[in-house]
Simulated assay, not measured.
Amino acid sequence: MKKLLNTVYITTEGASLRKDGENLVAEVEGTERARVPLHMLASIVVFGGIYVSPALIAAAAAAGITLVLLDRNGRFQARIEGPVTGNVLLRRAQYKASDAPVEIVRSIVIGKVMNQRAVLMRALRDHGDSCAAADSEAIAAVTDRLARIVRRAERADDTLEQLRGSEGEAANLYFSVFDHLIRAPDPELRWTGRSRRPPLDPVNALLSFLYTLLTHDCRSACESVGLDPAVGFLHRDRPGRPSLALDLMEELRPVLADRLALALLNRRQLRAGDFETRDGGAVMMSDDARKTVLSAWQERKKEERLHPFLGEKAPLGLVPHLQAQMLARHLRGDLDAYPPWLWK
């Protein structure tokens, strides 16, 4: 099984990164703050104005370590990586499948909706007694409707557009009760609906940041098995968009991202004061809040869960890689269908 390598996140404005022997060295104002062997790294993610030495860039590219540049708010800017080593035959199979992707999309939609439903059912099980009766009833009603969407998606006669419609309907239902899952006392940390580019409230700012991290991991997973991250199935092709990485993250984000966001808010690790509103209404996390989220994200990726298809326990951080492998095996003809990852 693939080894879960580390991702280094550099968030301190003005920091510098350099290569020293076979190590990455991070310095702030000339003082060494961290030293990590390159062979332990899968990627380096930097936020904002951080200097990266040419020698480190070259060494990372040669070692297959991806360097990702984000602005200080977590918005993607660029990737620097070495030569693409994808299997041309696998990519040809991927391109061919993208012309008629109904069965792959069906698996992705079923996996996503079932995991959304599992998140809601876990919330009812763990906190149903402390919720208002109306909130519990609303969550239960949505879980029932999500179950019906899954049954409908399982029908073999659904078209691609019908499946995309089912995915959108499920997302609307899921987020319609998302506020009932938040038990934070701060009135500013309420959920009123999804907003992006820019996020307009703290919860959306947190979710968008976590989705950026998950997208990065899913893109790396696609590339690691030789798939083209730009050619997807559920998401339409668009220049500059990693459509396949977005496909892969759909079934994972209710568990890996949404549940982590809820945990950070409900455990009061993040409070209203950790967010700030900019001109134009955009809401962003403070530097300290971002570090809290990154630390929690790394810890969550170490947690192990049983992979329902493989029957083996694996760290959550490896799940994107395992799913990319399952998709590649299906495209090669080794598996009859793509098996989604289901959280239980």
Rank of each mutant, 00 (worst) to 15 (best):
A58N: 05
E154M: 12
A263T: 04
A230H: 11
S43I: 01
I10T: 04
D237M: 06
N266H: 02
L24N: 02
L264S: 06
E103Q: 11
G281E: 05
S224C: 08
R72W: 01
A141D: 15
P315S: 13
A205L: 03
G311D: 02
A272R: 08
R236M: 06
L264K: 08
P339E: 15
K3F: 07
E312T: 13
K19A: 13
A134W: 15
D129K: 11
D217Y: 04
L244M: 11
S195N: 09
R79H: 11
T12H: 10
A171Y: 15
V293M: 00
I50R: 00
N115V: 08
E251Y: 00
A147R: 15
L56R: 01
F175T: 10
T11R: 12
E304S: 14
A328M: 03
C131G: 08
V52G: 08
L227Y: 01
G48R: 04
H235M: 12
P320R: 03
P101D: 03
K19T: 06
Q325W: 11
A62I: 07
L4A: 06
G273F: 07
T7E: 04
R152K: 12
G317E: 00
V45Q: 00
Y174H: 14
A123R: 00
L256W: 00
M121V: 14
V255E: 00
V68W: 00
G165V: 10
I110C: 03
L200D: 02
I104D: 03
K19L: 15
V52R: 07
R238W: 06
R122C: 04
R79A: 15
A34P: 02
P339M: 12
T277R: 08
P242A: 05
F76T: 04
R151Q: 14
R197L: 07
M1L: 13
T292P: 01
T12Q: 09
V84Y: 13
N204K: 09
M285G: 00
L262W: 00
L90D: 05
R259V: 10
E29V: 12
S166H: 12
L210R: 01
G21A: 10
W191R: 03
L294Q: 02
A282F: 08
R117F: 05
L322V: 10
M40C: 14
